[in-house]
Nucleic acid binder design. Structure first.
Lengths: 229, 229
DNA sequence: GTTTATACATACCAATCGGTATGTTTGTCA
DNA sequence: TGACAAACATACCGATTGGTATGTATAAAC
């Protein structure tokens, strides 16, 4: 049985898609409509990791191919060029992850400040050394590509807008419920909250220290509490 | 008169070194001990700009040589490799600029909070569109190189440490003078101040908007005022 | 005037990059 | 069972990269 055949027909079953597709590229994904779609997702995830580790410009297609076992012909069958691969990573991985972890919880929040602090603490617990070293994928890509590529810039800016908007809306609802001081400019507050969160992740990355992350998080929490009535 | 000879002997006189060395590479710098030192500084400044615009890894030595009119032989006479050139940019340009603009003023501050807010506003005025597009050189280089190069990491981290230390010391003096609330943990506050300032610059860079920068600065000022007694 | 080190200048190199052209395998549908 | 398109696989390409080897001009010392 050839490697190619195994990649297309093999099955495992129960385990998580993310783990499998990252580790066993011969696993046939049930969620995928076709075998081609599976290869595409495999490439997307590998590209995400490569970009997270090296940055977009330094990300090597050859290395992605080596890591996945996919050939260059396959890659260029699914993506017209490196830029399109990068855009797909932003749209299909970074944007969706942020929506799931940060936007949705804020949209469903009863108390915006309590919710955000809880979110900070829960996400903070999940961050390991590897994550501290590499930093926030959204921030990394934004800082690198926004000034030099309009396609990246518009995509990444939309993500930030969505995030800030969710926070601002939640803060405004909080004002209605008497949880947030009426004098607070919710749009400006949202801008600062997102900026300082990214700043904290960046500081922790430079220091490669979870302690710095938590110390910085404390400051952000103090600011958030200062918005409370 | 050959280009080489003009570069070594030419003189102009009164004007500023920075402007001259950037525009007229044949100007003989009085501050420089030797003709070689002048070429070295010319390369350093060009490298700083190239790194600021492209990032370190994407920075092209060929482009630096093209911009300055210096040849490859001259570059490798002054710097053993690209990495050493990058380190020199950090040590001799980025570190000194930060000390001058942010560390010294805080060391000499009477009221740390008032001083920092004033500093924010004054530096904020000087930031033009080009600066918003390219972002903070210190932050850019830190985010790009810290995870992948120990030499960059230690240099950049030292700069941040020095900066935070100056802020923390100033806040502590402020506590002594009754200007800063005694309950404030000055080290953690300094970490958060630096982080959110860099975060604000990063947010403005992604949005390529001075408005975002000022909105974000407002948030930081609110936080700083919350430290006041 | 000769020597010597500094300060370049020119030509070249292997490695890697993103991208392309062309050939082959596979699943599907008639 | 044959046709056909989707899904790859292999080989190759020009451009650019950081780096090196070698040659030359200049200023200062003797």
């Amino acid at each position: 049985m050839s490697t190619t055949a195994r990649r297309r027909h093999g099955r495992i079953g129960e385990k998580l898609h993310d783990v499998l597709s990252a580790r066993y590229h011969w696993w046939r994904c049930e969620r995928c409509e076709s075998a081609g779609e599976q290869t595409r997702l495999l490439l997307l995830e590998a590209a995400f990791r490569e970009i997270h580790e090296q940055g977009f410009q330094a990300a090597s297609l050859s290395r992605i191919l080596k890591d996945t076992g996919v050939t260059k012909g396959a890659l260029y069958h699914h993506f017209p060029n490196k830029q399109a691969l990068g855009y797909a990573v932003v749209d299909e991985i970074i944007a969706t992850t942020l929506r799931e972890r940060w936007v949705k919880p804020m949209q469903e929040a009863n108390d915006p400040i309590v919710t955000f602090i809880t979110l900070l603490q829960e996400e903070g617990k999940q961050i390991d050394e590897e994550m501290v070293r590499l930093g926030c994928p959204l921030n990394n890509l934004s800082q690198e590509m926004s000034p030099i590529d309009a396609g990246f810039k518009s995509r990444l800016e939309s993500i930030y807008d969505e995030w800030r908007e969710a926070i601002a809306q939640a803060l405004r609802r909080g004002q209605g419920h008497g949880q947030v001081r009426p004098s607070v400019n919710v749009e400006k507050a949202a801008i600062f909250i997102v900026a300082s969160l990214e700043g904290c992740l960046g500081s922790a990355k430079v220091a490669q220290s979870i302690d710095v992350l938590h110390a910085c998080g404390t400051g952000l929490i103090h600011y958030l509490k200062s918005l409370h009535t």
